[in-house]
């Protein structure tokens, strides 16, 4: 099967400028040499701590941020260097759902206008068709037509997230980047939104790049999961496998971080991470995880492990078994 999205060696560096006359002092390596593929209709979950570069990656693949290096192939077309004008037509195909439902909706626009505008820009529907489509969209995401004339501040967080989802659907995209779509919501609302996203995926054959910082949400929606650490993917495998048999110590640590309800399991041996994620401006030499890895050896400090494997990819010199 042809991948819908293929990312090769993607890098996103932010220059650090200090002072007025001195130019660059270095780079924050937010995303450093990422490669992965997303196939049509699947959900690729991206997991990582704050500062692992997962959101930057999500925004870079749909060109909300300029990639520093690397190729982004969408439907076999390299979009990593396309100009803003060339991209405008392609934007229809890929959309984004944001984490913060409060800053993601323009406070001055009524919901109806907010949802009609993308269609007015890209399609030439007549007014009644547009109106009908807006009504349909509201219905699809579980809101009603009467909400059309309201402003965003009149809605709750969960409802706003539904509006954000409806907006992402207006242009009938193929790929949607879900940038932590439920982390800002109440736990009770989270499952509603996750269910909605799942239903929509089935109905519209959507492909998701699902970013989250916890494994729980990702487990529920993802077909495959990529674990990110300091701008790199350390492990990429089908969901079942990553939960049953994690190979990277970092993945194991993330899984162990979840409190277990079962008292027998609770006394298991766990990998507990200490300290914070190192600064992406000065990532550690060799394996980036070696400063916090309980199994680190001298080789880990010197040689950078590469991501390899067939279905279960891992970047570690001494993978767990």
């Amino acid at each position: 099967m042809q991948p819908l999205l293929k990312v090769e060696g993607l890098k996103k560096y932010y220059p650090i400028r200090k002072g007025f006359f001195t130019s660059r002092k270095g780079y924050v390596k937010a995303v450093d040499h990422l490669s992965f593929q997303v196939f049509p209709g699947e959900t690729l979950g991206i997991v990582g701590e704050s500062g692992s570069g997962k959101s930057t990656m999500g925004r870079t693949v749909i060109r909300l941020e300029e990639p520093t290096e690397g190729r982004i192939l969408f439907n076999n077309q390299d979009i990593s260097r396309s100009s803003m004008a060339e991209l405008r037509g392609l934007r229809k195909e890929m959309q984004i759902i944001f984490q913060d439902p409060y800053s993601s909706l323009n406070p001055r626009k009524r919901i109806g206008d907010l949802l009609a505008e993308p269609m007015q820009v890209h399609f030439s529907f007549d007014d009644s068709t547009t109106k009908q489509k807006v009504n349909d969209l509201l219905e699809i995401v579980g809101l009603s037509q009467q909400h059309r004339n309201r402003y965003p501040h009149e809605f709750s967080g969960g409802q706003r997230q539904r509006i954000g989802i409806a907006r992402a659907l207006t242009l009938q995209p193929k790929l949607i980047v879900c940038d932590e779509p439920v982390s800002a919501l109440d736990v009770s609302i989270q499952s509603q939104i996750l269910n909605l996203l799942k239903e929509l995926q089935g109905e519209f054959q959507l492909t998701y790049l699902f970013i989250a910082h916890g494994l729980a949400a990702v487990k529920y929606v993802s077909d495959r999961i990529a674990v990110m650490y300091l701008g790199q993917i350390v492990e990429l495998a089908p969901t079942q496998e990553i939960f049953k048999q994690p190979k990277h110590p970092y993945t194991q640590a993330l899984l162990d971080a979840y409190p277990a309800a079962d008292p027998i399991v609770r006394n298991r041996e766990r990998i507990v991470l200490e300290g914070d994620i190192p600064s992406p401006a000065h990532p550690p030499q060799g394996c980036r995880f070696h400063t916090r890895c309980p199994f680190a050896q001298t080789r880990c400090q010197e040689e950078e492990p590469l991501l390899n494997g067939e279905h279960h990819l891992v970047a570690c010199h001494f993978p767990l078994s």
């Binding site: 405008r88 959309q95 993308p118 820009v121 907006r167």
Partner: peptide, 17 residues
């Protein structure tokens, strides 16, 4: 910096709009 402006870019709106 607000997400709704990023959303507007993602929706392919022109700069003047």
């Amino acid at each position: 910096q607000m997400d709704y402006v990023k959303a507007a870019v993602a929706l392919g709106y022109s700069a003047p709009r």
